[in-house]
Simulated assay, not measured.
Amino acid sequence: MATLRDLSRRLGLSVTQVSRALNGHADVAEATRARVLAEARRLGYQPNAAARRLATGRSGMLGLVLPGPPRMEEDSLFVQIVAALSQHLARLGRLFVLHIADPDEPQTEVYRRLIGGGAIDGFVLLEPQLRDPRVAFLRAEGVPFVVHGRIEPPHDYPFYDIDNRAVARRLTGMLIAAGHRRVAFLNGPARNTYAVSRRAGWREALEDAGIEPEPALHRFGAMSAGAGLVAAVDFWGPRGLWPTGVVCGSTRIAMGLLEGIRALGLSVPEDVSVVVHDDELPGLRPALFDPPLTATRSPLADGWPHLARLLVAAVDGEPAERLQVEGHVVTDERGSVAPPRPAPPGTV
Rank of each mutant, 00 (worst) to 15 (best):
D156M: 12
T331W: 10
D163T: 13
A166P: 03
T296A: 04
A314L: 02
P103Q: 15
L241Q: 04
V337Y: 03
E74I: 05
P299Y: 01
A101C: 14
V183A: 07
A50N: 09
H148S: 11
R334G: 02
L241F: 02
L126Y: 11
E39D: 12
R198S: 12
V147M: 06
G179D: 10
A225S: 08
R131D: 15
R334A: 09
E212F: 07
H148A: 13
G327Y: 01
T56K: 02
A222G: 15
E259K: 00
V268E: 00
H88A: 08
A227D: 01
L307R: 02
Q324N: 00
P340H: 07
Y45N: 07
T108D: 10
V97W: 09
G221N: 14
S14L: 01
A338Q: 13
V330G: 10
G173V: 04
I100H: 07
E326H: 10
P67T: 09
R203E: 10
I176A: 03
A166W: 03
T3C: 06
D121M: 00
V183P: 02
L92D: 01
C248P: 02
S59C: 11
A166Q: 07
P286M: 04
E280V: 12
D6T: 14
R297Y: 06
F289I: 08
H25F: 08
H88I: 07
L54M: 15
G44E: 13
P340T: 05
P69C: 08
D234L: 02
G228Y: 00
T3M: 10
T244A: 04
V337R: 04
M1Q: 15
V325N: 11
L288C: 08
P319C: 12
A178L: 10
A313T: 01
V325M: 13
L206N: 03
